[in-house]
């Protein structure tokens, strides 16, 4: 399935958000959104991915 991950097109096997994080090696503290909607970590395993979904995986970063 083809999705857009952090702005980049990507071919993935995962069908849920939890599986996607594992597949892409995101093991640390991250926050997720699918199609511009926040997905809390508790709902990731039930979040089914569809073709063309836009997934954002964000992590702590420097800020002012």
């Amino acid at each position: 399935m083809k999705i857009v991950l952090n702005g980049e097109p990507r071919q993935v096997q995962a069908t849920t958000l939890t599986d996607l994080l594992a597949e892409c090696g995101f093991t640390g503290r991250v926050a997720t959104a699918v199609n511009e909607e926040f997905v809390p970590s508790s709902l990731r395993s039930g979040c089914t991915l569809n073709e063309g979904d836009r997934v954002e995986i964000l992590s702590p970063m420097q800020g002012g």
């Binding site: 952090n6 995101f26 503290r29 995986i57 964000l58 992590s59 702590p60 970063m61 800020g63 002012g64």
Partner: peptide
């Protein structure tokens, strides 16, 4: 003050360092 950006690999080390500073965290 801190922010959130697309995970590029540096986020986790940054988070560890910020926590060790002992300051209150204000995300923007």
């Amino acid at each position: 003050t801190v922010s959130l950006r697309r995970e590029s690999g540096a986020g986790q080390a940054f988070w560890q360092m910020i926590r060790d500073l002992g300051a209150l965290i204000l995300p923007n």
